[in-house]
């Protein structure tokens, strides 16, 4: 199970690297998307109990996975999607004004 944590850490690393190093606005947004997905995966993975089932209590199951991180993950997904949408709106507007998606060129044009 350590392996999944490792994968999540690598995903976080990929996302952070993209945000820090990429010069294209859309690539940065994609990096943020990956970062947020990794965090949500972390939420879901941490709720898992070996042998547990879906937290819908109807049959005679005994062990359930932890429903709290799943509920929090849903909240986080929605908030993440809202910020992504706002970012994409900004990207479109920035492209309209400066005709480029490169962050260094946008800075140069503003002087």
């Amino acid at each position: 199970m350590e392996l999944t944590y490792l994968v999540i850490a690598i995903l976080i690393c990929v996302g952070l690297y993209a945000i820090a190093s990429k010069r294209n606005l859309l690539k940065i947004v994609i990096g943020i998307n990956i970062l947020e997905s990794a965090v949500i995966f972390l939420f879901v993975f941490s709720s898992y109990r070996p042998g547990g089932t879906v937290p819908i209590i109807s049959g005679n199951h005994e062990l359930f996975v932890d429903p709290v991180p799943q509920a929090l993950a849903l909240t986080a997904i929605v908030i993440g999607a809202s910020t992504t949408a706002l970012m994409l709106g900004l990207v479109i507007e920035l492209y309209k004004r400066y005709d480029t998606l490169n962050i260094t060129e946008i800075r140069k044009m503003r002087g």
Binding site: Y5, A9, I10, I12, C13, L16, Y17, L42
Partner: peptide, 18 residues
Amino acid sequence: YCLILAILLASMFFMAFS
């Protein structure tokens, strides 16, 4: 530099998870 920074942060996260 960006890669090193990202790896450092990510390994901090990994340490926390484990």
